[in-house]
Design a protein around this nucleic acid. Sequence first.
DNA 1: GAGTGGTCTAGACCACCTT
DNA 2: AGGTGGTCTAGACCACTCG
Lengths: 243, 243
Amino acid sequence: MSEQRTTQSSAIIGALRQQLNSQTLAAGNKLPAERELADLFDTTRITVKEALHHLEAEGLIYREERRGWFVSRPRLVYNPVSRSHFHALVAAQQRVATTRVLSCETVLAPAELVSDMALAPLSRLTRICRLRSIDRRPVLYTEHYLIPEYFPAIGEQDLSQSLTRLYEHQYGLRYGRSRFDICPTAARGEAARALSLAEGSPVLAVTRINYDQQGRIIDCDREIWRHDAVRIRIDSQEPAFSG
Amino acid sequence: MSEQRTTQSSAIIGALRQQLNSQTLAAGNKLPAERELADLFDTTRITVKEALHHLEAEGLIYREERRGWFVSRPRLVYNPVSRSHFHALVAAQQRVATTRVLSCETVLAPAELVSDMALAPLSRLTRICRLRSIDRRPVLYTEHYLIPEYFPAIGEQDLSQSLTRLYEHQYGLRYGRSRFDICPTAARGEAARALSLAEGSPVLAVTRINYDQQGRIIDCDREIWRHDAVRIRIDSQEPAFSG
DNA sequence: GAGTGGTCTAGACCACCTT
DNA sequence: AGGTGGTCTAGACCACTCG
């Protein structure tokens, strides 16, 4: 029944958790350096890291590469099904959103998308990469893959706005049904760098395949969320077998 | 543009990833012991652990406490909105499901549920804890909190079956709407022990508040999934602002 | 240049699982 | 009893960020 063996690292976790709960360490604050914490708790950096990784996994703190550890802010409540615009959603939760366009180019369709989007082999897609921040902290890296035929000259548009809105106003395309995949995994490559995450940090990947109102696939988007920055909330009105 | 600095740990990650892709290490296999890997790659256990944690975060391998590291099986594709029964869902994906009832007792309502479920302070709830496995591997720990008045003598029922079915057939209660929260976090306490996860391992928490067809809250359930065992898939038929 | 985390060495003892 | 991961020591150098 031992609720928790008191290891050194769990003692550190407990102490920090208390400081976090009592707001002594408030959202956005920087934690003391790992070496400083090691001195404070009279142990080594490895043990301190162990404790920090634990709190990171819980989402209470986060890292920025070589900058230090920080106290997480409340998670954004996000409903991928409702398609609310990112900036509006963030504003509604009293936070400040920014979007930075990283790139927009034509690329060979990645192998997994060829099958997911039912493309001809060696198809080309327009890829738009963006980085979105809340309160100046990067929390979401997105890649949109568009069928080029439907979106001529999209590179000349303002891509920092809602793409959903752009699709509709500029190209007359509205979403019909979509398929979402939500998958906990690890940050790698471009996404890790953009989010200033260490390779292998836990993230939440949301992949969406979008159809228009005629049932044609029009694009696919991959969202990589910092795992501690988001909570997905979905309201279902009627269960599948109620009728 | 350095795609990946070649640290020792990334070399180990690469080597293991290759073995995993080529099925040399096939799903369910046990990896060599950490000490053995350290010898193999001529490094220390800490560096090996670093690499293993990385692959664990990606969901390619998993740990069982003090038993070793194993190759993950394909993720279960799960749609929480559709409410399909766990055993049926798993069988449809050519896997074998088992359910073990851990406990069923009356408890004081946890503080967060008092507000989420709009209960009177110090209310009592019936809590049912279960552990569900796929192909003999525990992957899902669930806690159901029921309003006791609606479910008299539920402790005498067979609780290893679908509770949804039991609600309907035994108590005449059918779900109306529900609210889901999906949140990546870390395993703690009872859930960690039941899933034989180390405290702090990443998990996916799915919390659901269920209303019946008259709009009364009837129960709340918390699901803790091993993060590498599941992929959530939701098909949306009509976006919120299409009509 | 100072400070930070990222990586790494070469060990050690302990708690728990398997046989 | 022997093997495994869990925890820990006491350092070290490197790469990157920031002022």
